[in-house]
Amino acid sequence: MRVNREKVISFLLVLPSIAAVGIFIYAFILWSVRVSLSQWKGLLPDYTFVGLANYIGLFNDPRFQIDIRNQAIFTVLFMIGCLIVGLALAILLDQNLKGESFFRSVYLFPMAISYIVTGVVWRWLMNPAQGSRLSGLNLLFDQMGLDFLVNRWHTTPYWGIAFIALPAVWQMSGYIMALYLSGLRSIPQELREAARVDGANEIQIYRHIILPMISPVTLSAIIILGHISLKVFDLILAVAGKQLQLDVPAIYMWQTTFDGYFFGRGAAIGILLLISVAVLVIPYLRWNLKTEESL
């Protein structure tokens, strides 16, 4: 009897949070779906049902096509960059050299900084001015005799978005390093010793034993990077402001909704972003909670 009473109390303790999440996440998602199926355009709400018109409009919209392309290029480069840099740094730190914790702290510190700050600083590092007005990294390259590296960064025609991956990797690769490092540290030392006794060299040990064992980390990292890559709109904004060349769905959503009052279309973009995250995250959550139970 008493146990039951306490279960009721524990439920009541969580109830306010259940209600808050229920309203602010789930009910709001449904509300957004409803807006996305309406013709609401203007300051006053208008929920007249128009079916999938906003979604169809988006896929026929040249701007949204640019956005999808930009987002795809950015996401792929951002993921590859973070995975390679993160894994390489983790392996280096795993060698138990002196100063490891100092280096680890340096690699990870950008995580503590906002995209806005990162963007404002990289805006100057990636200053595209040429000739006598060379500055930022271009100037550094020039002074070091690496002239061939001088480029126009995010103002490069057509491929500008690719350069946004650079500050994003700068900011997030430390996170991936930390994930890999904790994966590497969870591998028992005896396993490496045994392989060494069998005559394997360090590179073979990594290739055939350690890397296969940490492949679940790679999966986690890809999910995390995938959902972060949709959130970087503030970084793009701080580096370059709002320009079509570097547009992504998140910026379009914001502009069309809050500058253009086209709420129907803005909501449709939001829902499309949600769907693209959900197809990754829901299986990931199920996988995570399942492995948790089996422990």
């Binding site: 996440i25 957004s32 807006v35 998140a250 973009i269 939001g270 829902i271 959900a278």
Partner: peptide, 9 residues
């Protein structure tokens, strides 16, 4: 969730 999906509500 991407917060764009709940921003308008």
């Amino acid at each position: 969730i991407p917060y764009q999906s709940i921003l308008i509500p």
